[in-house]
């Protein structure tokens, strides 16, 4: 009986352990600009995903001409977090800025047997009329074959979704 309980517990924990150890999300993903919503104020975007237990680090490496920027949002699928420097891939020709000194509440969860990462954020923003909050809903979806990643992003304020397709460029570390 004890062996059965042990076996059952192992089977339940196996997906999480397997995800942490060998998540197909992990690695570097390069934006396919031709097949994605147009970036604005950026020319290139490489996404690096690292999974460590319930934490998922989403590192955004951006380029604008000769300028390079790297920013990481570490979300937690086990609990909500407040990120002080939440990075949003902005449309940079709009006068919308991160609100100074404000943290962003972020919630994340695995869906679809670990093939979709859902990230929800209430992003404090500065606009010309003062401050407001944008609800940001993102789904990072593994495409069959695990060589493509689809990011669908919805803003509470935007009438069109932003759809980004990434191609894997390296295996996980």
């Amino acid at each position: 009986m004890r062996h059965l309980r042990f076996l059952l517990a192992s089977l339940l924990l196996l997906p999480l352990v397997a995800l942490a150890a060998t998540s197909p999300f992990e690695g570097r993903w390069k934006l396919d600009r031709e097949r994605s919503t147009a970036l604005d104020g950026w020319h290139e975007w490489t996404l690096e995903v690292r999974v460590n237990g319930s934490q998922v680090a989403l590192q955004h490496d951006m380029k604008w001409g000769k300028t390079e920027l790297s920013a990481t949002n570490t979300v937690d699928t086990a609990k909500a977090v407040a990120l002080p420097d939440f990075f949003r891939v902005e449309q940079r020709h709009m006068a919308i800025y991160p609100a100074k000194g404000k943290s962003t509440p972020v919630r994340a969860a695995w869906l679809d047997a670990g093939r979709t990462l859902r990230v929800e954020a209430d992003v404090p923003l500065e606009i010309s009329q003062g401050e407001t909050v944008m609800r940001l809903y993102s789904e990072y979806r593994l495409v069959e074959g695990d060589r493509e990643l689809l990011l669908i992003e919805l803003h509470s304020s935007r009438p069109r979704p932003l759809v980004y397709r990434f191609t894997k460029i390296t295996a996980e570390k």
């Binding site: 919503t37 604005d40 709009m94 009329q129 407001t132 803003h155 304020s157 935007r158």
Partner: peptide, 14 residues
């Protein structure tokens, strides 16, 4: 996307 950008600004600046 330009139209979407402008509409987003309009929505945020309520």
């Amino acid at each position: 996307e330009v139209a979407a950008d402008l509409n987003e600004l309009i929505a945020l600046n309520a």
